[in-house]
Design a protein around this nucleic acid. Structure first.
Ligand SMILES: [Mn+2]
Ligand SMILES: [Mn+2]
Ligand SMILES: [Mn+2]
Ligand SMILES: [Mn+2]
Lengths: 158, 158
DNA sequence: CTTCAATTGTAGCCAAAGCTACATGTTAGT
DNA sequence: ACTAACATGTAGCTTTGGCTACAATTGAAG
């Protein structure tokens, strides 16, 4: 490739996409990867507040399985990005923006999990995989997922 | 939470998993994230070699949408991890280990893509989302996916 | 055989995520 | 009121994955 004028151009069964298309796709995956952690944090903070009344930095660290300085660093990033605030020794709080994001992320998480379960993925694998997959699901895919679930719920009820 | 003996422990509709379970899940997602880029590179290198005869660093960079030093850096990591070798001005080559990984990754990529399409996700969204999702799909999920596809192929043939 | 464009490499920067080790602050219980 | 356990914060390090700018090498075409 490159300078060499492509010689025979043997076509394989799975042809490559154009450079531009492929770069666009990889770029989307990269940007999803870079927001994945923020999403996990706001979702977890919302969950903790809802189920225990507060979200403390150490609890967040333990649930994520990271050291507490790591959690504190990331929480600082949340603050910088206007997603959260903190009152020391009193826990972490979501801003309006953070709360909106948390709701979206939570809805997506549940939907992905339900689809995996509906496809017959065993419970624990579904839970674990959903934690990663959720960050890479576009609106279009979300819509397809919820329509698929509507369908399979109808089928189950018959 | 934390020191405070949990008072009423009001149960919500979606109870939290245990700390250990949740930490295990997040840990898996983190480790998948850290290998995602390696996987994309070996897959792309295999694709380029198969369809054009060689995989040059600049072509890889263009297709990924990153600068060429970034690609070269990551290729250095591939070499360090024993996945690839390079002959300057002659392209990148996969080691046996790299080739094994590339095959697995490619199979997974196709399967994820097919499942998304079967669920009714529009083509371009499916292609883009698959690029991210593929790195977070466990063996168990893969198995469920291929069984689901077998089912839907049968249904289509009826 | 020369040249010049393309490829490859190097240097040096940045931010994000992770870590350990240590320091400081709070508060629950006695 | 004290104090010890726990929460929080700080310092300083690493690796990864980005970038730009510049340098060096190669080889295709004239
Ligand atoms: Mn997640
Ligand atoms: Mn989640
Ligand atoms: Mn990918
Ligand atoms: Mn892929």
């Amino acid at each position: 490739m490159s300078r060499k004028a492509s010689p025979v151009r043997k076509q394989s069964l799975h042809a490559l996409p154009t450079e531009q298309a492929q770069a666009r796709r990889f770029g989307k995956a990269r940007s999803a990867r870079s927001t994945a952690i923020l999403e996990d944090y706001v979702e977890l903070i919302a969950d903790l507040i809802e189920s225990t009344g507060e979200a403390r930095a150490t609890d967040i660290a333990r649930r994520l399985g990271v050291s507490h300085p790591t959690a504190i660093n990331t929480i600082a990033r949340l603050k910088r990005e206007g997603l959260a605030t903190a009152r020391p020794y009193r826990g972490i709080f979501l801003t309006e923006k953070g709360d909106v994001l948390a709701r979206r992320v939570r809805a997506r998480h549940r939907l992905v999990l339900e689809v995996l379960l509906a496809l017959g993925v065993p419970h624990e694998a579904a839970e674990a995989d959903a934690e990663g997959i959720e960050h890479h699901v576009s609106e279009a895919t979300l819509k397809a997922f919820s329509e698929f679930l509507r369908g399979s719920r109808v089928k189950k009820a018959s």
